[in-house]
Write a protein that binds this DNA or RNA. Structure first.
Lengths: 176, 176
DNA sequence: TATTGTTATACTCTATAACTATA
DNA sequence: TATAGTTATAGAGTATAACAATA
């Protein structure tokens, strides 16, 4: 009710983890042999840190992803964002409206398609995103302090091969 | 309304991905340098396959995880499940009630703590879980056909090091 | 006084159907 | 006829507060 209008709550997802000791008594070895389980646990762990560090910018992971794609692809359309982030169009509408309301992004007319609209960062949006990207890059190193740079690269490569299907043989696609 | 009573819908999460070509035009390189982004995308990809293959047993990933921990830790309590799976107690109540209603699990009195209850698979639950675990193991290989067994092991090890903090030095914990 | 399991509830996330204006 | 953006809405997932029974 009486909250800052544009702001969202962005509350912490974490919950007191002192019960972690009890996990030691439980055999989780089979679940830990499954990639989906491990990938989801790892993602949630990093996202928790992400939420903490990005709260200062009032950006959730999905907001950051959207801003990042707009920053690196000025004029990208809503539909392209959906394709790249695997989101559904209706779920993007409110987000974009909010970011526009905050003065972070701008919608301009598309050069060739009058149905579509090109998305751009505002001047303020560019400043915000630059800071947020620095924070994200730092966060990456801090949250993964146990992994060397080489191990992180290995991890990313393997994960991409999971979610991005390999080309069969002579299939043309974007060159590495 | 006129649906099988205990059953849940378990609908597909996927949505027609033919627009995937558009991703090729978009620069996603920065996002792909972030572990959280890659891990989440990979997890969602595998979970999508999981949902398809496990629909025959009417088990969602979380149901399978719960059954797996009960199967490998007979007499485990609700609270221990929450600790191991990073779930909140209120969100487990309905799930356990449903699984009990389906005759898959049983609640028995805890040997030492009368507040708690030990969870066990029923005979039918053991059969169901045995089939489901076989399916999960097969799925693992099929969904990750691009990765060798060694690469999968490497991936799992790295992911575990992300979500499970390493012991400092002389910290006693479960031996590898 | 703290913990287990529970109820009630609110908020967020994800999905579908259907509309409009353009292509 | 198909697509971009939108509205409205339903359903699943995730969070908090508070309670009774037991430790």
């Amino acid at each position: 009710m009486a909250e800052p209008s544009t702001a969202r709550s962005l509350k912490r997802t974490s919950w007191p983890r002192k019960a972690a000791a009890s996990v030691g008594d439980i055999d989780t070895s089979y679940l830990e042999s499954l990639t989906g389980y491990n990938a989801r646990r790892a993602a949630l762990t990093i996202i928790s840190v992400f939420l903490d560090r990005m709260a200062q910018y009032e950006l959730r992971p999905v907001d950051f992803s959207v801003l990042s794609l707009i920053a690196h692809n000025p004029g990208i359309t809503s539909r392209q964002l959906c394709g790249a982030l695997d989101m559904l169009p209706p779920n993007l509408v409110g987000m974009l409206r909010e970011l526009e309301g905050r003065g972070v992004i701008e919608k301009r007319e598309h050069p060739t398609d009058r149905r579509a609209q090109g998305l751009h960062l505002s001047a303020a949006g560019k400043k915000l995103y630059a800071k947020a990207q620095r924070t994200a890059t730092e966060l990456e190193v801090d949250a993964l302090h146990d992994l060397s740079a080489e191990e992180r690269e290995t991890l990313h490569g393997l994960l991409r091969r999971v979610y991005r299907p390999q080309r069969k043989s002579g299939e043309p696609d974007q060159p590495g």
